[in-house]
Design a binder for these strands. Sequence first.
RNA 1: GGUCUCGUGGCCGAGUGGCUAGGCGGUGGUCUGCAAAACCAUUUACAGCGGUUCGAAUCCGCUCGAGACCUCCA
Length: 492
Amino acid sequence: MATELHIYNSLTRKKETFRPLNPPFTGLYVCGPTVYGDAHLGHARPAVTFDLVFRYLRHLGYKVRYVRNITDVGHLESDADEGEDKIAKKARIEQLEPMEVVQYYSDRYHADMEKMHVLKPSIEPRASGHIIEQIEMVKAILEAGFAYEINGSVYFDVQKYNQQFHYGKLSGRSVEEMLSSTRDLDGQEEKRHPADFALWKKATPAHIMRWPSPWGEGFPGWHLECSAMSARYLGETFDIHGGGMDLLFPHHECEIAQSNATFGKDSAQYWMHNNMITIEGQKMGKSLGNFITLREFFNGNHQKLERAFHPLTIRFFILQAHYRSTLDFSNEALEAAEKGLKRLWQAMDTLNNLPAGNASDTDVASLADKCYAALNDDFNSPVTLSYLFDTIRTINAVKDGHESLTQESIDNLKQVFKTFVIDIFGLGEPENGPSDNDQELINGLMSILLDIRQQARKNKDWDTADKLRDSLQKLNITVKDGKDGASWEITK
RNA sequence: GGUCUCGUGGCCGAGUGGCUAGGCGGUGGUCUGCAAAACCAUUUACAGCGGUUCGAAUCCGCUCGAGACCUCCA
């Protein structure tokens, strides 16, 4: 049973015991979104994955500084010189100021994240706010001799770097391979080597987002921002760097190179990569155009969606798979997730009203240990959930009088469920219903209606009873007849 | 073409040398005026072929299939 946290490190390709550099402080950096469109399901994966990491580390007592950037500049359409900045392109199309685009989509991103119970990071820096840091880093790399300037742009000299360091250590590639396999792209004649990448790009006259620099007006390269901002807020070396698997190469490989070129050492100890979400067996991504935005999931407004799904269903769906596995989207899978989540919520409800017995038939004390062991094993959320679901069977058995639990056991379970479901998994049932006053009123009215219906049922006046039930159903209120009278629930 | 990952029951998904996660669906049942909901029980599996082993879904090899990265992508 793992009592210490183990993390799969992409850099070493194995699970390692987590040992922060300066406990209890822990630094976590995750590559955030480029805000030029609404976030889609794929974006939810790293957000939820690293939200779990953030929550769990905090739960374990670490003082976590979680930095997740917003890319608002420097992210080119292609790596070639002629590439257009994604933000600027969107701004041009929509006739907006680039920062207007950034603000608009950042706000929407935040709203989506909040609905999915993704906690805000400790710091959410924007690339455009750290131009100075990036210029300083370019200077340092130039001084160290690992970059060259040409026509107002600065490129990282991969070959030279590779003589002293290992370019490709993260992605398992060699520079020689890259030479032979790199495709020919237009506009690369400036580079000395196809694998070289831009640290600073000269702005063409048409380029809107530009800043002065020692090399003339331009803008920073995409890979640079994460290196500069992580160093700024977490130091030259820090604990965990996360992101999607598709960023492993070249983005993270370049980050490692930049850090080594600047500071002579790797930035992050542990590299974590979440796997992709697929749709019909293929990666869901911007370039393939097969993505469904989170908003579309929330309102059901997409051709491929049979209906809307609650934000927390999306969250549960993601947590039900291990973060390093691909996860295939389908309506059926989401419906299954929705029902599973409901079962979880219902059990927690049941737990609050469970009658205590004199003895416990089932040992529930080990539940917490098992859950911790699963999470300590590289954040294995699906196994943790399976333990909780096993326990739900016991909870229901107690409710039905088939088994019994002592008050102590029940309190223990309440604590464990709260800890894991709400605190760590962030799956607390939302109370987005009416305010307390309104709720009291509704409860009172419902109680009157159900009384009337009960009376009708007693009189075998099925017409009245069913009419009441059907009318309430139209208001999305489901009446459930049970042994001890009827209960109701607002569905939707 | 290169690098890598993966192929688990109707579906989604864990596990990873022996003790058959879990969810959803299906089926049977409890409850019920009926229904719904809920609950209980139950069902089928490890792509194929070889090898290692007392024993493999789990290790090795091959075959077939899928995907990711190599270009922007979470």
